[in-house]
Each structure stands twice: as structure tokens, then as C-alpha cells.
Design a protein around this nucleic acid. Structure first.
Length: 845
RNA sequence: GCGGGCGUGGCGGAAUGGUAGACGCCGGGGACUUAAAAUCCCCUGAGCUUUGCUCGUGCGGGUUCGAGUCCCGCCGCCCGUACCA
């Protein structure tokens, strides 16, 4: 027995060094062992590690350590998603260089991660802003260009007319530029695109094979890709021209009462000689480009003098220019069916257009009025000539057939998914490796001239892209004709950087992006862990990039991530007071506040502050808890344990001081228990405690199962139970053995404590991190007795103990013998008896 | 607006359609101590006429011998919405 305390301030660093010195977590691709690639979404080096990172990487760490103990050769790497806007913002605000700022952040964050004791292979670390990395990315981009998957076209951006610069959606606040405050305009630029739509069907089909992805993410991706069957057809126009539209609801064609075209549709542009039309088109250019902004903006239309002739009825439908129709989607024109599309309904109501019913749930109610909104639901076609009485599906097919035989339209599959615009008019990103030559056009940079590196001498005093105004960087000779030409000054979307980094972790040759043979050994990633906010874009782009590389023969694997896990956020309550003068809340950090069980007061003045909702940690709400301070106080293992406890990993985890203190106490409680491993003898002469041994084996099996399912909160609860049972058990060889195995069992979660205990108390030899997972005896997993619930009409009336596997007859007899049940029955006749073996008996009267 | 998710004691949560509240936190009571810290033990969904009974998993319906779990309709919150990462 000992009364010493576990001291993480000494032990943590000792074992972190021991693992590094032993190369414990360096992945060996030549190993004969089966491979396991565990990956968490790599961080953006924003400055400091936050609790969300700690939670994410702790989960992956437990898996990595567990897999190693199960005999796998584990690859668990870490790097930095280092390009992006925050570095440029820091450059503007603090006058630092984006690269210097980023490098300093990486150094700081790496040290923080190392203090948490993550089982990472740091030999494979890289940052996406390393010229070596982005040079290989440029080469891959050129490969995709050669494969016909890269092209240029005009596309809309947010334009700040005062700062004369392109704005990210994030930089548009309420339709205004974040710095200038000027109303944002839509502007067209020639930009680079990746043909992700070529893979729309593959990406959709592939979702079916991703059995270990959350159903919700697969659904979200499916909806995002948005495959739909519809009709593309043309209206004859009153001015002699034709108007092509696309509709997913050709069955409602008899309900069409207008057509609408985009502001930049050629027909609208053709009418722009009229000042009224020009003014309306200008008005449509106002506002931001996000889907949410477009969908919620007021629907505006301009009625042109042109009309469109309905292909069946011959009716002349008015043609509107409308702000909600986008040139980028479909044909840039739609037919408006107000009765069965909510957006059309609102538009028709506003501009006093007919709202016709052509689908009715009840065919007898063919002329029922609408109740203030469109009816998009299923039903039978009405008021539609030859379509009347058909189902929606049949009518769709019929209209498509008639359009095709009549030669005025054809059935088409369209995708909601659009091609991926990768151009960014910014400095801190991967330069797009192309050169613009007046004579030769757009010319790829020859691969032997890669990487195209970013110039260091740039300034951020004025808005805009520093690459554009750099005195020399963009001026180069054309690789084809040798004449003076200009470099492309757009850089790649940072999602490109994160679309193949997992391949670079797996293999890092100097002369190529990756070695296919090495990649084949590790890929696909066995467990990929990160935030749900990446459910669509990042994950879809990474899937696309992987397929595109497979398509060009670079790799064999089609899907990069065999299993995906999306973890919840770390949240914290907020403390605030309303500033009387300004009427806005002022937030206080947890360190400024004294929190008691029934409220909180500000330390500075002792007066109360309001305890607000538990929300995601953010600087603006001042509800951030710095991991470093917590680790310094309680040690890495207490923080890791907290991250895994209580909340299921896919849900939000509310941070609490009481919680981390409880975890720190549990670390010491385990330490005391480990100190008792020698007590009670270790030989066969000491008494065998079967109940405890059974509990041990059951726990080892259950914890393994829980870790494999990433149900860390349940594994934690199991360990609490086992610890309680061991503490209470009388001294025995079984108990000593359980304590030794407990140290191994908790080691994926609390690795420093486990190593220190083994070394201090002689609980085993070698590093725990390199030990095997405890063996389980299947015979000890089953109990001899079970508790049977006795119900009357589904209500619990009694419980009895019965041997496991008892017959239905025995259980029924046991139930009927219960006095509580008999009182409940009160002499009523038994109509039915339901027996669920080993669980319950339900008497129905 | 559209797509997706979530909702269970004071709090985080557990529960193959089968005993709702495991496990932890908070709180209360006690032991130890001169005292405190630490530690240990007990209690802890609400109510009632307390061998036990009734109610109870966001709200309203439904299916079932039995619903937190399945179905329908709502409400609230969260994530995404293509240039935040």
C-alpha cells in the first residue's frame, strides 16, 4: 500500500519521451502485421489547440493505441492544413507575413499536441504550405488537366465595389462587405473548375459501399449530388425565338402560368437596351451569392413583352426576368407552376398570375382552392387533358414521351451537383500552375519547373490579391513560344489541399506525390474522424479526388475512408451581462467568474452575472477553456478521460470544471488501486474469486467492443464499474491479476498513468503501449443466472431470479407464483402469456 | 428557403420493440479528523392513501401483449447550404 499521489507534471513528459525514444508510434510499412490507418481531420493552424481538437484527437488516439495492442501495424499521422484566409487576415491586422504567422502557430500547436501524449507518427508530419507538398499538388492538378478534368469558365463571385476585391461568403455580413460596409455585388470572373460532375454517378453509387459511414452523412451527400429525372424542352417565343427550360415536374406542365429567366440569360441581355430592363438586371446583381441568401431574398420579377407558347394548350405565357433563377443551373430558365412549387406560388401571388391545380390528392376535388401555399405532394393529375387520372410518375413519363416524339424536348437526368470552382483570388494558397500567353493561350507550367512557389516579398496594406500586383512574380516567358506571358495569379481552394493529404501521409517520395505501392499498403483509411461540418464538402471533394486519381491510373483505391465518424463539439456555458448603455450583452470568461451550483458572480465586483446557454466554445462569447491550462493543472490523462466520458462522441460535450476535477480524482483513485496490485498474494494458494474474474473478463470484452464502436462513453462507464468491483473485492490473487489487467485496459485512454503505474509498482515488463490487449476467456462471459421481469399488461409487477436458459414453462410458472402479480391479476382470467427467454414474462388478461 | 440531425432526472447520459434513469457530475446525510483537504459509506425522477400504487423520455395522435425506441403531424435547438476551415 502506498499513499503517494500520481504526479502528471513529471510522469507525462517522462513517458512521452520514452515513446519517442523507442519509436513506439512510428509506422513501419514493411511490417508483416495487418495494417490499420487511423486518421483525424488535420487541423488548420489557427494559433492554439482548442478543446475541439483535443476531443477529436483523443478519440483517434484511443483507437490507434487499441489497434496497436490488438496486433496491428498502425499509421496515425498528423500534419497541418496550413493555407487559408485567417493567415491573410493576420497579415492585414498585425502586419506579419502569412507564412511566418502560420509557422509560428504550427510550432506552438505541435508542442501542445505533444503535451497531451498522442500516439502520433511525427516522422510523417507536413504542412500543406510546404512548397514540396503544394508542388506535388500542382503536378496532380496538371495530371487532371491532361485527363480533361480541369477547365475554365465564367462564374459569379461576391464583389466589394469599394475595396475592389473579391469577398468570401464569410466576409459578406448582411449583404455588405465586412471591411468597407459597401453593398456587395455579383460579378463574373473567368475561373478554374474541376469536373466533379463527371463523377456524379460514381460518387452517388459509391455511397452504397460505405457501410461504416453514418447514414445521415450518406443521405446528405446523396441529396447534395441530387440526381433527378426530368424534361428539357423549348417554348416557341412571340419574338420568333425559342426558350429552353428544364423541369423535374413535367407532369405539371398544364399548370404552367409563366416562364422565368435569369438576369444574365441571353434573352434578358438582349432586352437590356431598354433602360428599365437594364435597371432591373442591375438590381438582380445586388446581394451575396450564397444559396441561403438567394433563397430567402425577396422574389423579384420583371415582365418582358415576350410571351411563350404552351406546347399543349397554345396559351401565351408571360416571360419574366427573375432574381431567383440562376444561369448556372439547368438552362437558366424555368416554367412556373405556382400550384405545385412554393417559390412559383409566392411569385405568382405577388405578380397576380393564375394559380392552377393540376395535381389533387382526391380526384373528386379537382377544383379545390389552395390553402395559401403550393401543394408539392403526391396525387392524381387533374385539369390536364390527356394526363387526367394518371399518377405523377406516369404523367412524367407520358409528357417526356410526347415531347420526344414531337421533337420539342427530351428526358434528361440532371444533377444538383455543380462543378467545383477552385479559383481563389488570394495569396496564401497553392498557385495554379498555368501561364497565360497572348499567342498560345493558357499553357500548363512544365512539370520540371514545379513547384511554382509563392513570392515572399508581399504586402497586405491594400485589399486584393498581392500576387496580382507583385512587381515581378507574374511576369514570365511562355513555356511554348518563349514570348512574354503572365502567370495565373489565382490560387487553389484549400479544399484541394485536404483532398489528397491522406495519400501523402501514407507515402512520401521526394520525386512524386506518392508511391502507389506504399499507398496500397495503407489505404483506405480504416477510421476517419472529424466534425460533422465536413459532412458534405470536404468529404465529397476527397472522395472525388481519390476517384479522379484512380480514374487516371495513379491509385487503385476508389473510396478513401472505409469508416467515418463525425464527432460533436465541445461546448461551455456563457456568462454575460446586458450593457445598459448599448443594450448588448457583454461576455465574461470562466476565469473571471465564480460559479456555484445556483448561479455565478463576477469576481471583480461580486455581483451576479447571467449564466447563459451551453454553446460551442468561441472567442467572441468568451466561453473558451484553454487545454494547456487544464493540462498544467490536472495532467494529460485527466483531460483525455474527460473528453471520453459521459457524452456520446457524436454529440456535443459540455465542458465543466466539476467534470474535469472528477476525472482528476479518478486518476488518483486508480493510482491508489494500482498500488494494491501486490496485496493478497499472486499464487495459486490465494483464493480464486470467480465473480470478480467474471466481471474482469466481461469488462475487457465489453470495453473492446465499445472502443471498436467508438462508444467511448460506454467503455468509460464499464471501467468505472470494474474499478468499483475491484476496490470492494476481498484481497485475492484474482484481485491482483485484475489490477494488472486494469492498467492495460485503461492505457488507451490514460497512457501516462498506465506506464507510470507499471513501472512504479512492477505490474509488468516493457511499455504498456507495446503490450497486447488482455485475453478474454469466453466461458467467463456468460452469467449463470438472469433477472426475469414479470409484467401484467406490460406493466412491471415483480422481478425474479432464474437460471439462464430456463424453459418458457418454468418461467411462466415462476411468474404465476409471484404474489405481486397475483394481486395485480385480482382473479382475472389469463388470456395470453408472452415469454421472452432470459428477459420477461408478460401476462395478458 | 432547402437538406440533414438532435430532444430522457438538477446536469452529461444508459437502455437488440421487453425491468426507463446503468455510469459519472451536482446536491443532501454520515464516518474519519482538533480542524480542513483527501478518502470512505448511505440517499438522491415526481407524486401518493408507501408490503405497494400512479405519473413520467419536447408536444399531439397511431401501431403493439408491450413504445424512449416504429409510423403520422407539430414545436424547439444545432449543422450544412458550394469562396470559413
Amino acid at each position: 500500500m502506498t499513499d503517494t499521489r500520481f504526479d502528471p507534471s513529471v510522469a507525462d513528459e517522462r513517458w512521452q519521451r520514452a515513446w519517442t525514444d523507442a519509436g513506439t508510434f512510428t509506422a513501419d510499412s514493411a511490417s508483416e502485421k495487418p495494417k490499420s490507418y487511423i486518421l483525424e481531420m488535420f487541423p488548420y493552424p489557427s494559433g492554439r489547440i482548442h478543446m475541439g481538437h483535443v476531443r477529436n484527437y483523443t478519440m483517434g488516439d484511443v483507437l490507434a493505441r487499441y489497434q496497436k495492442m490488438r496486433g496491428f501495424e498502425v499509421l496515425h499521422p498528423m500534419g497541418w492544413d496550413a493555407f487559408g484566409m485567417p493567415a491573410e487576415n493576420a497579415a492585414m491586422e498585425k502586419g506579419v507575413h502569412p507564412g511566418g504567422w502560420t509557422r509560428a502557430n504550427i510550432a506552438q500547436m505541435k508542442a501542445q499536441l505533444q503535451r497531451i501524449g498522442f500516439a502520433l507518427d511525427w516522422t510523417r508530419e507536413f504542412a500543406t504550405c510546404d512548397p514540396e507538398y503544394y508542388g506535388h499538388e500542382q503536378a496532380l492538378f496538371l495530371d487532371l488537366y491532361e485527363a480533361g478534368l480541369v477547365y475554365r469558365k465564367e462564374s459569379t463571385v461576391n464583389w466589394d465595389p469599394v475595396d475592389m476585391t473579391v469577398l468570401a461568403n464569410e466576409q459578406v455580413i448582411d449583404g455588405k462587405g465586412w471591411r468597407s460596409g459597401a453593398e456587395v455585388e455579383k460579378r463574373k470572373l473567368n475561373q478554374w473548375f474541376l469536373k466533379i460532375t463527371d463523377f456524379a454517378d460514381d460518387l452517388l453509387e459509391g455511397l452504397g459501399s460505405l457501410e461504416d459511414w453514418p447514414e445521415k452523412v450518406r443521405l446528405m451527400q446523396e441529396n447534395w449530388i441530387g440526381k433527378s429525372q426530368g424534361l428539357e424542352f423549348s417554348f416557341d417565343l412571340s419574338d420568333g425565338g425559342r426558350l429552353a427550360v428544364y423541369s423535374t415536374r413535367p407532369d405539371t406542365i398544364f399548370g404552367a402560368s409563366f416562364c422565368a429567366i435569369a438576369a444574365d440569360h441571353p434573352i434578358a441581355q438582349g432586352l437590356a437596351g431598354d433602360p428599365e430592363v437594364a435597371a432591373f438586371i442591375d438590381q438582380c446583381k445586388k446581394g451575396a451569392t450564397t444559396a441561403a441568401a438567394l433563397e430567402t431574398a425577396e422574389k423579384l420579377g420583371y415582365r418582358t413583352p415576350i410571351t411563350a407558347k404552351h406546347p399543349f394548350t397554345g396559351a401565351e405565357l408571360p416571360v419574366f426576368i427573375a432574381n431567383f433563377v440562376l444561369m448556372e443551373y439547368g438552362t437558366g430558365a424555368v416554367m412556373g407552376v405556382p400550384g405545385h412549387d412554393q417559390r412559383d406560388f409566392e411569385f405568382a401571388s405577388k405578380y397576380d398570375l393564375p394559380i392552377l391545380r393540376v395535381v389533387s390528392a382526391d380526384p373528386a376535388q379537382a377544383d379545390a382552392p389552395f390553402k395559401g401555399e403550393a401543394e408539392a405532394g403526391d396525387g392524381v393529375i387533374v385539369n390536364s387533358d390527356f394526363l387526367n387520372g394518371m399518377t405523377v410518375e406516369a404523367a412524367k413519363a407520358e409528357v417526356i414521351t410526347r415531347a420526344e416524339s414531337g421533337g420539342w424536348g427530351e428526358g434528361r437526368t440532371v444533377w444538383r451537383l455543380r462543378d467545383w470552382g477552385v479559383s481563389r483570388q488570394r495569396y496564401w494558397g497553392t498557385p495554379i500552375p498555368f501561364i497565360h500567353c497572348d499567342a498560345c493561350g493558357v499553357v500548363p507550367v512544365p512539370k520540371d519547373q514545379l513547384p511554382v512557389t509563392l513570392p515572399e516579398d508581399v504586402s497586405f496594406d491594400i485589399p486584393g490579391n498581392p500576387l496580382e500586383r507583385h512587381p515581378t512574380w507574374k511576369h514570365v516567358d511562355c513555356p511554348q513560344c518563349g514570348k512574354a506571358a503572365r502567370r495565373e495569379t489565382d490560387t487553389l481552394d484549400t479544399f484541394v489541399d485536404s483532398s489528397w493529404y491522406f495519400l501523402r501521409f501514407a507515402s512520401q517520395p521526394a520525386d512524386r506525390p506518392f508511391d502507389p505501392e506504399e499507398v496500397a499498403k495503407w489505404m483506405p483509411v480504416q477510421h476517419y474522424i472529424g466534425g460533422i461540418e465536413h459532412a458534405i464538402l470536404h468529404l465529397l471533394y476527397a472522395r472525388f479526388w481519390t476517384r479522379a486519381l484512380a480514374h487516371t491510373g495513379k491509385i487503385a483505391v476508389q473510396e478513401p475512408f472505409a469508416a467515418l465518424f463525425t464527432q460533436g463539439m465541445v461546448t461551455h456555458e456563457t456568462f454575460s451581462r446586458i450593457d445598459e448603455a448599448r443594450g448588448v450583452p457583454v461576455f465574461f470568461g470562466p476565469e473571471e467568474v465564480d460559479r456555484t451550483s445556483d448561479g455565478a458572480t463576477l469576481l471583480a465586483d461580486g455581483a451576479p452575472v447571467e449564466v447563459g446557454r451551453v454553446i460551442k466554445m468561441s472567442k467572441s462569447k468568451k466561453n473558451v477553456v484553454d487545454p494547456d491550462a487544464i493540462i498544467a493543472r490536472h495532467g494529460a490523462d485527466a483531460v483525455r478521460w474527460f473528453m471520453l466520458s459521459d457524452s456520446p462522441p457524436e454529440r456535443d460535450l459540455p465542458w465543466s470544471d466539476a467534470g474535469i476535477e472528477g476525472c482528476a480524482r479518478f486518476v488518483q483513485r486508480l493510482w491508489r488501486l494500482f498500488g494494491q496490485a501486490g496485496a493478497g498474494g499472486v499464487g495459486a494458494d490465494a483464493e480464486y474469486d470467480k465473480a470478480l474474474d467474471r466481471k474482469l473478463h466481461q469488462t475487457v470484452a465489453a470495453v473492446a467492443e465499445d472502443i471498436e464502436a467508438l462508444s467511448f462513453n460506454k467503455a468509460v462507464a464499464r471501467i468505472y464499474e470494474l474499478v468499483g468491483a475491484v476496490e470492494k473485492a476481498p484481497l485475492s490473487a484474482t484481485r491482483s491479476d485484475a489490477i494488472r489487467k486494469l492498467a492495460v485496459l485503461v492505457s488507451p485512454m490514460m497512457p501516462h498513468l498506465a506506464e507510470e503505474a507499471r513501472a512504479t509498482y512492477g505490474l509488468g515488463t516493457g511499455l504498456v503501449a507495446e503490450s497486447g490487449w488482455p485475453e478474454v476467456d469466453p466461458a467467463l462471459l456468460v452469467d449463470d443466472e438472469v433477472t426475469i421481469a414479470i409484467q401484467h399488461m406490460g406493466k412491471l409487477r415483480d422481478t425474479v431470479t432464474a437460471p439462464k436458459g430456463a424453459s418458457k414453462e418454468d418461467l411462466e410458472a415462476l411468474a404465476l407464483a409471484s404474489a405481486n402479480l397475483q394481486r395485480s391479476l385480482d382473479g382475472a382470467a389469463v388470456r395470453k402469456v408472452i415469454v421472452v427467454p432470459d428477459r420477461l414474462v408478460n401476462i395478458v388478461t
